[in-house]
Design a protein around this nucleic acid. Structure first.
Length: 267
DNA sequence: ACATTGACCTGAGAGC
DNA sequence: TGCTCTCAGGTCAATG
């Protein structure tokens, strides 16, 4: 689940629930999720602190504490936050719990334990260390900047969109969605696109991410022409009704419509 | 620089 | 129903 639109939805959720309250206690049930810090250090650092604001870059979400540290969350493939009264039952796979002084609890849930929590003192420096590219929804990523990113590289469109070091935020699902909406085959090559197609790819990418984020990335609320729900559903193209196909790229399954997204070289 | 593969984890869902 | 197997929205490292 957690690609840019999902993480943006998480951000808004945390903004609405978890800011400006003192942390009373921390429970780490799955220490392996902590990166670069021990259970003890993690807990003592957060205890007594308040989260004052959040930031997102790509799939990373940061919560800034009132002593200017950052709790950085990465949700892996199955992670999500949950905020609820402490006396009610924990949701499934609650791995790290932050208890606030208002009786509520913020849980980092993750079925597959692929994901990380860490403490850093500078959000931007952290992003640099991670070699994270510009956030795909950053307004500074305009058409001109996008063209420059694209001009430097080669390779399959799908790989380009998913490369976090170039642009941060798109994962397997949304890369497929963008390519579907742009009517471009995932195996087409970046260096083969003319200016017009690069522009189309850019505009479609922005629109898909913005629309999805605003719909809180809920599949049922996305436009009916979206590919996303059909990969696990009827496997039919929502535009032409034809059968969708798959192909493996970067060891991930790419879904596409062979009629709407003609293959490079026309095969 | 790019493509491919496996490893990390666990369980939902498909297939028998 | 119950068992087995495959696969899953991410990232990283090793290899070609």
């Amino acid at each position: 689940m957690p690609e840019l639109p999902d993480v943006e939805a998480f951000k808004r959720y945390l903004d609405a629930t978890s800011l400006h309250q003192a942390v009373e206690g921390v429970i780490v049930r799955t220490p392996r999720l902590l990166e670069g810090t021990s259970k003890r250090r993690f807990s003592t650092h957060l205890k007594g602190r308040r989260f004052e604001r959040t930031r997102r870059r790509g799939k990373y979400l940061g919560l800034e504490t009132d002593d200017s540290e950052w709790l950085i969350l990465h949700f892996g493939m199955t992670g999500r936050p949950a905020y609820y009264r402490r006396d009610s039952e924990d949701p499934p796979f609650a791995r790290v719990l932050v208890d606030f002084d208002n009786g509520y609890r913020l849980a980092y849930c993750s079925q597959r334990k692929i994901g990380k929590l860490r403490l850093v003192n500078d959000f931007d420096a952290f992003a640099e260390e991670q070699r994270l590219g510009i956030d795909a929804l950053d307004p500074q990523l305009n058409l001109r900047a996008f063209r420059e990113l694209a001009a430097d590289r080669r390779g399959m469109l799908k790989s380009f969109l998913m490369n976090q070091g170039v642009m941060a935020g798109l994962g397997n699902i949304y890369a497929d969605e963008v390519l579907f909406q742009a009517r471009l085959h995932p195996r087409r090559r970046l260096e083969d696109l003319d200016d017009k197609k690069v522009k189309r790819l850019f505009r479609v990418m922005k629109r898909v991410l913005q629309t999805s984020a605003d719909k809180r990335a809920e599949p049922g609320k996305l436009p009916r022409t979206y590919l996303l729900p059909h990969r696990r559903g009827d496997r039919l193209c929502p535009v032409c009704g034809g059968r969708l196909k798959t192909t493996k790229i970067n060891n991930r399954t790419s879904w596409f419509c062979p009629r709407c997204q003609p293959a490079p070289g026309g095969r």
